[in-house]
Simulated scan of single mutants.
Amino acid sequence: MRPDPFNWLWRRYDLEVDGTTYPDGVSVHAPSYVVVDLNRACTSYDAVAGLDDLSADGGAVRFKVYGDDTPLFASGVVTADSGPVPVHADLTGYKTLRLVVQDAGGGPLLNLADWARSRISCR
């Protein structure tokens, strides 16, 4: 895993998005990215993406998933009021997975973004 060198990645347990507790995931501030080298034949990435309940009101982000440099998933604007979004991306044939969070308003102090229940399925 290669996190954005200008941001941090917080591996967490029991993170909360919209009042729901998820057993595991990662939190980042927007804007940021994380690259995962797949190192074997993987078939899919699944997660629940949203603003963490620790975020202050007013945050807004967009979540994107890439296989190598190919866009595989893009959310609309996600806020605390809109709740989390399910993420699914087909990874067949890709060597890297890149998870991107873009600021859509509010700035980094308000945009604590979660990739909750992240799962990469491989053969």
Rank of each mutant, 00 (worst) to 15 (best):
W115K: 03
G76K: 09
A56E: 08
L110D: 04
G67F: 11
P86G: 04
D37K: 07
A104Q: 13
V78I: 15
D53V: 03
V61L: 10
R98H: 04
D90Y: 06
L9Q: 08
D37I: 07
F6E: 13
L15T: 04
T96C: 00
R117Q: 15
S55M: 02
V87Q: 04
I120D: 12
E16W: 07
R12F: 03
S75K: 13
V28C: 06
R123E: 14
T43G: 05
D52S: 07
P3L: 07
A104K: 07
P71Q: 14
D57H: 06
P86R: 13
F6T: 05
R12C: 05
C122I: 11
Y94N: 04
V65C: 06
P71F: 14
G59T: 09
G59N: 02
D90G: 14
W8L: 13
S82K: 12
G67C: 10
V61W: 06
P5T: 09
L112W: 14
D103Y: 04
D57V: 10
L112A: 08
K95N: 12
M1N: 08
A49L: 01
L91G: 07
R40T: 09
P71G: 10
P3Q: 07
D90S: 13
V36H: 07
A41T: 15
H29P: 00
F73Y: 15
L9T: 11
L38H: 02
A116T: 01
T96F: 01
H29M: 10
S55Y: 04
F63K: 00
A80K: 15
Y66R: 14
D4S: 05
L97W: 06
A104E: 12
V48Q: 03
D14T: 13
A41I: 08
A56W: 11
D114Q: 09
D57N: 05
S44W: 00
D14C: 10
G106V: 12
D57R: 08
S75R: 13
R117E: 15
A56Q: 09
L110I: 05
A56R: 03
P108H: 08
P84A: 15
P108K: 09
D81C: 04
A41P: 04
S121Q: 13
T92L: 12
R62M: 11
N111E: 14
R119S: 14
V36D: 00
D37Y: 06
T79K: 02
D57E: 14
L99R: 03
R123F: 14
N7M: 09
V85Q: 08
A47M: 01
T21N: 02
A30Q: 08
A80Y: 02
V77F: 05
G50C: 02
R98W: 03
P31I: 01
N7L: 06
R123I: 13
N7A: 14
A56K: 04
R119G: 10
M1R: 12
L97Y: 07
F6S: 09
D90Q: 10
L51E: 01
D4P: 01
L51W: 00
T96I: 03
W10L: 12
H88P: 00
R98I: 06
V26G: 02
P84E: 13
R12E: 12
A56P: 00
A89I: 06
V61F: 11
G25S: 05
G105V: 09
P86C: 05
K95F: 08
G25F: 00
T92A: 15
R98S: 11
V100A: 03
D53C: 06
L97I: 11
G67H: 10
G93L: 10
C42D: 02
Y22V: 02
F73C: 07
D103K: 07
M1Y: 14
